[in-house]
Each structure stands twice: as structure tokens, then as C-alpha cells.
């Protein structure tokens, strides 16, 4: 049943402090670019009726380098990421991924913070954040905490974010080595991922994460370990089977996702050898 729009309450914030105070007062769902919001409202799957609009919190839009850390404000849109020289220089695979999110209209509104918060297993930026060991910066009126991306999700569309906290930024430590990204979507543009893979290869060190193949984005720990132990590509690809738990859904099949994950990991390992 479609949600009645007139019953929804929203408060706007223009500063982080305002937003945090609103979240402290009562439980509200933050909305940024709102690109996923109306889909949920159309299907009536969102139970929350109160929102805090943070779209105009400009201080969260910054992309900067702090020391050797790349700091991406939560409200950086995909368009911002595509255009940022800092992203191009330090994390080009994130720009590549951003170009493949929706069309320009979605890229103009969708934000990296929203992609993290929405917690879809198919979120295109998430395998990248996982592979580069990003840190999610959460803030509330009582303070700020940094959560390693690997610890951020606790289950399907669930995370450690408390209701009074806002994702304000994501921090990317230096990424030495080669970056590799591949999205297998339902079509060439405006596509939801069937399999999405991000990898970083620095000599013998290898980091690899996949989306759309488990309830949350997954780091391919077993495959990584196999290679770290000096085992062959075939063995690493075999190990990958236990890293992922894909399902059949309206977009693809578990078999296909297994096959393509294996093929792409093999390609990644071959191309970055």
C-alpha cells in the first residue's frame, strides 16, 4: 500500500550540528539525495514517518585529503566523485563505479553516504570501500566515532549506526598498488548490479570485495588468504566459493553469480599479476 505523503513529517537541517540535535531529539530517518526513498514509499515498505533532510548541509559535501587520508564527505554525490581530481588521483575506481550508477539524474542526487546508509547488498561503491579498508565516520551530539568498514554492517540492510548518529564522512587510507573494478549489471546503464567486484593488488598483497553476492557486501577473506599463502589462482577461485552466498532473485541466479564472480576474480588476478 502506497505511503500517504501528507502524513510524513520532515525537518530540515543546514548544519551538521542542527541535524544531530534533531536526531538526538527523536528518531528520524536522514534523507540525502532521496533516490531510494520514494521507491520504498511507493511500495509502502518504509515504516518510518519522520525524516530529517540533510541535503543542504553543505559542509558534508567536501572531498579533501587530510594528511595521507582521503576524506569524502557523506553528501558527495556521484557527480562530485566523477569530477573530483582527488578521487581521480587516489581512488579512480570509485569514479569509475560512480559513472555506472543510474543515469546522470541519479548521479546528481545520489550520495556516497546514502549508498553506505541504505546498505543495499548491491550498492556499487561498497565493494570499493570494503577493499580499501575505508573507515566510516559517525557523529552524534555526544561525539564522533570511526568504524572500520568491515565492521560497519551487521546483516542484511543493518549496520552499527545508532539512530542518533549521522554518517558524516568516509575516510580512505592510502591505496598502494593497482585498483580493479568491475560491475556486471542488468544492462549497460541504469543498471543494478548482479555482481560487483573491487580489488586492490600491491605485489603479493591482495584485497578483494564483492557486492550482490551475499546479504551484505563481502570481503573475500578466504580467497585473499589462499593467495597470501602462495596458492594458485585456481585455488583462490575455489576458496572464493565459500566467501560468497549468492541467491536467485528477479535479476539473476545464484549459479550465474558464482560463475561470474569466479571468472572475474580470475581475470582480476591474471590482469594484475
Amino acid at each position: 500500500m502506497r505511503t500517504a505523503i501528507s502524513t510524513l513529517a520532515v525537518r530540515g537541517a543546514t548544519t551538521v550540528r542542527q541535524a544531530l540535535e534533531i536526531l538526538h531529539d527523536e528518531e528520524r530517518t536522514p534523507i540525502a539525495g532521496a533516490t531510494d526513498l520514494f521507491v520504498a514509499l511507493n511500495f509502502g515498505t518504509l515504516t518510518m514517518r519522520r525524516f530529517v533532510d540533510i541535503w543542504n548541509v553543505d559542509e558534508l559535501r567536501r572531498i579533501a585529503v587530510d594528511g595521507d587520508t582521503l576524506v569524502i564527505g557523506a553528501l558527495a554525490t556521484y557527480t562530485d566523485l566523477i569530477r573530483s581530481p582527488m578521487i581521480a588521483a587516489r581512488l579512480p575506481m570509485l569514479a569509475e563505479a560512480s559513472r555506472l550508477v543510474g543515469g546522470p539524474q541519479i548521479q546528481n542526487r545520489g550520495t556516497i553516504g546514502g549508498n553506505i546508509a541504505n546498505a543495499s547488498p548491491a550498492g556499487d561503491s561498497l565493494p570499493i570501500l570494503s577493499a580499501v579498508d575505508a573507515v566510516v565516520v559517525l557523529r552524534s551530539v555526544t561525539g564522533e566515532r570511526r568504524v572500520a568498514f568491515r565492521d560497519f554492517y551487521t546483516g542484511y540492510r543493518e549496520s552499527v549506526r545508532r539512530r542518533d548518529e549521522l554518517i558524516v564522512a568516509v575516510e580512505i587510507p592510502p591505496v598502494p598498488g593497482r585498483q580493479w573494478f568491475r560491475k556486471v549489471g542488468t544492462r549497460a546503464a541504469q543498471a543494478i548490479s548482479k555482481v560487483v567486484i573491487a580489488g586492490v593488488r600491491d605485489g603479493q598483497s591482495l584485497r578483494l570485495a564483492l557486492g550482490s553476492v551475499a546479504p551484505t557486501v563481502v570481503r573475500a577473506r578466504r580467497a585473499e588468504a589462499a593467495l597470501a599463502e602462495g596458492r594458485s589462482i585456481d585455488e583462490a577461485v575455489d576458496a572464493l566459493r565459500a566467501d560468497i552466498t549468492p541467491i536467485d532473485d528477479v535479476r539473476s541466479t545464484a549459479d550465474y553469480r558464482h560463475l561470474v564472480s569466479a571468472n572475474l576474480v580470475r581475470r582480476f588476478l591474471t590482469e594484475t599479476r
Binding site: A34, F38, D53, G103, Q105, N108, R109
Partner: peptide, 24 residues
């Protein structure tokens, strides 16, 4: 937000007006 038939410009940038709440 899939078909783009509702595209308008907000501050010069194309967006899907079916996904933008008035408040924004």
C-alpha cells in the same frame, strides 16, 4: 527514477522530479 520522463533541472542539474521531495 528509472525512465527520466520527469527530468527537470534543479539549480541547473538534471534530476528525476519523481524522486525529489518538495522540501529539497
Amino acid at each position: 527514477g528509472e525512465c527520466g520522463a520527469c527530468t527537470v533541472l534543479v539549480d541547473g542539474a538534471p534530476v528525476c522530479s519523481c524522486l525529489v521531495p518538495l522540501v529539497q
